[in-house]
Design a binder for these strands. Structure first.
Lengths: 234, 234
DNA sequence: TACTGATAGTGTGACAATAACACTATTCCA
DNA sequence: TGGAATAGTGTTATTGTCACACTATCAGTA
């Protein structure tokens, strides 16, 4: 980007740039990730994240939203999306140099009616994020990184709500946290802290669940949902 | 990255890819960032981060280390470096589409003997990170993001030591934290917490500093220097 | 040699956050 | 109407955080 070399990118072979989107949801009590079956080589028949080449006039974010829309039908407004990391190992694609900007995305299970976990005929399917099929390219590495980021964000922000439908019971919310963090949480502490954080509000509706019906809550739109980190030093 | 479109990147104009490195140190009691004066248009005469095109056979990290070495003489072993974020707005460079993978780097002030703050003749100079000169491209935005990341990392990891010489007094360490976080810290609390974190060890040497000499410490190589974040939910 | 200026170094107590823990309430169904 | 199933609620012990002030050691100088 600077001197003293003359500034002419054509002096170099140029890598290609793609975006790949790791889209999570919670479905059937597990964390699921959306994968698409590759039809062509390399890795034909294997599964990969939705993604594709960045167009010359669109931003990286736009490219990610566009690929998500094109390949999975998930609308821009329905997802939480943020840049994850850029993977650029020279031989991550066996044919040519491709640098991919990976994105991390969350969607509520109610926003994706057309896809069904277990529908093997489809090109696009949800898979367990912890037990995915063999993935193309370096997508296993990307998935591991995305899961780490998800856990991490869950602890200090309120993105977790993006994994749930618009309204949810407190039990469903707690289970979502337990599924992602892979640990059991205490019901009373969870609710106490939730109350203090002031990020959900009750709706007048209830969900039947075999016993006493549970009140449905929604995420408070105006909630400031970050938390101070505990400092290593004061 | 996937189907069903035929997989041929030459169908699209390709963006170019660069790396840019935001290198920080602490010098003369302030947080400083290394900038290089551009000789050519666009933005000739303005300042920019060290960086350049990613070669077709090198990884992104390697490109960042290489540019740092080439443009500033800072050796790979002497710096802490991590990927920051990828900036890819279509018009961030006025001439053509350039996507840049920004890196974030820290170096101890003792590792850079050849550069001097205030030496205006040089191509490469240290500037106050909080009061930089006008920067080329979107580098102001990148700098702001890097400072945010630096503050953030300081709070839950031990990267702060990378900003100091090999050995340092506890006062110098505290001042480094105060400079970066831009707030005053309590001496006793700082030392108490440092003791509990168990990340530094005393050396047998002292530094003269006008009054009672201060013991020099070094960072413990085996220190596990992450801290649990305070959770939004238990 | 003792006094002064300058910086190094050390501990405690009040307050806030966290974590462990068990019972009552409401609904459905047999 | 009693039992199965799930919802919902508060208190206490422990731990972490934060505010706060004095003694120690060195250099220089009267």
């Amino acid at each position: 980007m600077t001197n003293p070399k003359p500034y002419n990118p054509n002096d170099y072979d140029r890598p290609s740039v793609t975006v790949d989107v790791v889209l999570f949801t919670i479905l059937d009590g597990t964390l699921q990730v959306l994968l698409i079956k590759r039809k062509l080589d390399p890795f034909a028949g294997q599964w990969a994240f939705p993604g594709g080449f960045v167009r010359i006039t669109e931003s990286l974010d736009d490219a990610a939203y566009r690929e998500l829309q094109e390949e999975t039908g998930v609308a821009r407004e329905a997802v939480y999306l943020e840049q994850l990391y850029t993977f650029g190992d020279p031989d991550r694609d066996p044919r040519m140099r491709i640098i991919t900007v990976a994105y991390f995305a969350l969607v509520g299970a109610d926003k994706i009616p057309q896809l069904r976990s277990g529908d093997d005929a489809a090109d696009a399917r949800w898979f367990s994020a912890y037990n995915p099929p063999p993935l193309a390219f370096d997508h296993s590495e990307i998935l591991a990184y995305a899961i780490t980021r998800l856990r991490y964000k869950l602890e200090y922000s309120a993105v977790g709500f993006q994994l749930l439908p618009e309204t949810f019971t407190l039990r469903e919310l707690q289970q979502a946290y337990e599924i992602v963090l892979d640990e059991k949480l205490d019901k009373r502490n969870f609710r106490n802290k939730l109350r203090k954080a002031d990020v959900v509000e009750p709706t007048p509706h209830f969900r039947d669940s075999g016993g006493r019906p549970a009140r449905l809550y929604r995420f408070k739109a105006d909630a400031v949902a970050e938390v101070k980190t505990r400092r290593l030093f004061p």
